[in-house]
Design a protein around this nucleic acid. Structure first.
Lengths: 229, 229
DNA sequence: TATAATACTGACTCTAGAGTCAGTATTATG
DNA sequence: CATAATACTGACTCTAGAGTCAGTATTATA
């Protein structure tokens, strides 16, 4: 019994964590295909290459599997968004960074995106055990963004407005526009979604009567320098 | 058999239509409470004050009931939106009108709103028999709006951009902001949602560097005159 | 290698709820 | 009022799928 029980993970624990991750990945695929209700744990198990009973060694219920799968990615998204916003310089660049991170996730993890798009309503609306934590996480992300917007308002770069509501709205916009592309109602090419969302959020539909500064970006967004560590 | 079979509806038909309507109303309440999957037809029947079997005299399946309930309202919404936009004068007023109609529906028919908010993702994403008609209806509404936006662009009142995508985005915005209020993440008072959405869509978050016209509305939006029918 | 501990299995149980249908109530008709 | 037509009922069937658990395989330990 002189096993490594001090902070370091047991071989067993590592294995368990790995298996858990595998299950969540499989779950993500299946939930994406079917939606929460139509998904069966039988299919999840099959997808993960294990028996249904094994799922219950790692998670207590279907709901819990679902939520674990979603939360994992949402936490990751928040981390990345925070990092990207910290990296960027100035309000505009930070907003762009927030958008870029979300776009990146949507593009790279289509499974998660689909779940997110499809189940968002249910996650918000119906009283599950996970509604509250979901909302909190979602709100936390919005608050990160709202802080940036508030800075911008103080600096006069943005007109005054309710920062949290605006931040939430930007989150909505990203989700929706990707939904729309996924639904096939948005042009499938020739429309840079991230740019579209940014432009709309930043300028609205009104014509630029008097461009404040002629900072027409050369080709793409100038997001490559990485000063101050 | 010299019954009234000429265009005019039979007593029977009227009755049947009435019963059908009652069922859809009940269904709307139950689907709103529970969401599609968790709703049971037993509860719908109870809510309508009839037996479960009777439902099947009017509709062939749960799905069909759901879709009928949703479509009814969506068609109504489209009608109203078209009318309101026709009434209004100029692009800005028309956009405001489109927003107002949607806001009105959201406020007046909370049951429908909840269904709409919660099941939107599913309606879009998963291959039901009703995905296509739903999308078509949703797109049709967007196109109505897109026509207005396009006019605005031609007239130089809006900067150029993809009209359909912008129209869809405005629809999204309305839905989302009402979702948010319903979720309780938007301030519950002191924020006029319709105005919030309009302002954001129209001006973005950027400060008004040079107000094109000093048409600062006095207190509320000036939406009461109704000239030229 | 024996045996204990742990990880996994999949056939099984149990439930909920969609859809059915023989029977009953209601309404129309001669 | 008799009887036919129609409208409704709710107990029942059937299915799908979440969750269980006795049994099997695997891995660690003596």
């Amino acid at each position: 019994m002189t096993r490594a029980q001090n902070s370091r993970k047991t071989r067993r624990e590592v294995l368990a964590e790995f298996r858990g991750g595998e299950i969540l990945a499989a779950a993500r695929r299946v939930f994406a295909r079917r939606g929460f209700d139509a998904a069966t744990l039988e299919e999840v198990a099959q997808e993960a290459g294990i028996a249904k009973g094994t799922l219950y060694l790692y998670f207590p219920s279907k709901e819990e599997i679902f939520w674990a799968a979603v939360r994992e990615r949402m936490l990751e998204l928040r981390q990345r968004a925070q990092a990207a916003m910290r990296q960027a310089e100035g309000v505009q660049a930070r907003v762009r960074a927030a958008i870029a991170v979300r776009g990146e996730l949507m593009r790279s993890d289509t499974e998660f995106m689909r779940i997110y798009l499809t189940e968002f309503g249910h996650l918000c609306a119906h009283p599950t055990r996970h509604r509250k934590p979901f909302r909190e996480l979602y709100l936390a992300m919005a608050r990160d963004l709202a802080d940036v917007l508030e800075d911008g308002m103080r600096a006069g770069e943005l007109r005054p407005g309710p920062p949290l509501e605006l931040a939430l709205t930007l989150q909505f916009l990203m989700r929706d526009c990707f939904t729309a592309r996924y639904m096939g109602v948005f042009a499938d090419d020739g429309l840079n979604l991230e740019n579209f969302v940014f432009e709309l959020f930043w300028h609205g539909v009104r014509p630029q009567s008097a461009p404040p500064r002629p900072v027409k970006k050369p080709a793409a967004a100038p997001r490559r320098m990485r000063k101050t560590r």
